[in-house]
Simulated scan of single mutants.
Amino acid sequence: MATVMSTVAPPEQKHEPGPERERERSKDRVIGVFRATPFTYATLIIVSAVLCVPLVFVVSIALASDQTVNANTFTIIPREFHWDNFTRVFGTDLPMHRFLMNSVIISLGAVVGQVLSSGLVGYAFARLRAPGKNALFIIVIATMMIPAQITMIPQFILFKELGWVNTFLPLIVPNFFSNAFNVFLVRQFVSRLPSEIDEAAMVDGLGFFGIYRRIMLPMLAPVLIAIGIFTLTATWGDFMGPLIYLNDESKMPLALGVQYITSTSQALQAPPWNLVMVGSILLTLPMILVYYLGQRYLYEMDISGGSAGVK
């Protein structure tokens, strides 16, 4: 009697969508919601044009002649193109070259201080274990609610007692103690990175500083560059700080030197607004260049997941 052998096909297994597929679907849904329309582009063009009007007006005044300045007949669209104004501004009685160099020194010193201190303090709050660490972090964050005007006079008295008035030190040294916002950025970035990275490095014999220098620092590149851009932007155009602490004209930065151009005019005579606007353009162009070169790091800075550091 022949036996019939039959094979039963195994039941089909349903594959659950993985996390990557879920992220792709979520991304597609977001793109579908924010899909641009002709109305969107038209709105963006109109808003951009309105926001660019002051910049175009600045360029128009910077290229104007002295006769136009005296007659006060400025126009938004440039009618004159006196490019020699960009060289004349360095031929005034004011040391514009020195102003520019002072701004570079103060800004770079502040950037170095913020990057070094913010990275170390933020990493310590994220990884080190110590009693009262969370309470101390809350106190640090709470300092963001204190207006700068409240601490202005106590800081001046402190720096005066130290003999730092009329030097660059009050404008550079405080940046080596970071600030609450930058510490928060670094802490949030590091806290989202896998702790197994630190544990594996400790097995290899690295301490906390070694882990930070060899492993965490390369991963923190986007957020640290973003902090450097924020600090450079705030310091390059700072007017109040140099006005309080600097007395000598030779130590003033460009932001304060541009204001001094208006004081070179004679009585009952209009200030040389064309040269003032040239100085304003010199203040603006470096920041535009810095943002253009560093914008990809600003986009990569993902404090919610820390993914930018492990790409």
Score class of each variant (00 low, 15 high):
296 R>N: 15
161 E>L: 11
286 P>D: 01
148 A>F: 13
193 L>E: 04
13 Q>P: 02
278 V>F: 04
189 F>G: 04
116 L>T: 14
175 N>A: 12
206 L>C: 13
176 F>L: 07
159 F>R: 02
239 F>S: 08
171 L>Q: 13
93 D>S: 13
191 S>F: 03
232 L>I: 05
105 I>P: 03
167 T>K: 07
125 F>R: 05
167 T>W: 11
133 K>M: 13
135 A>Y: 11
99 F>Q: 02
145 M>T: 15
133 K>G: 10
275 L>D: 05
205 G>Q: 04
18 G>A: 09
78 P>E: 08
229 I>H: 04
5 M>L: 13
311 K>G: 09
77 I>L: 15
203 V>T: 13
175 N>W: 13
277 M>E: 06
234 A>H: 05
114 Q>P: 04
214 R>S: 09
26 S>M: 10
257 G>D: 08
231 T>K: 02
88 R>T: 14
70 N>Q: 15
237 G>N: 15
38 P>G: 11
158 L>S: 12
110 A>G: 15
286 P>Y: 03
275 L>R: 11
229 I>P: 03
256 L>E: 05
131 P>A: 07
96 M>Q: 06
205 G>P: 00
72 N>C: 05
54 P>R: 08
97 H>K: 05
304 S>Y: 08
58 V>W: 01
91 G>D: 12
40 T>P: 07
276 V>Q: 09
57 F>H: 11
118 S>N: 10
84 D>W: 07
226 A>E: 09
195 S>F: 10
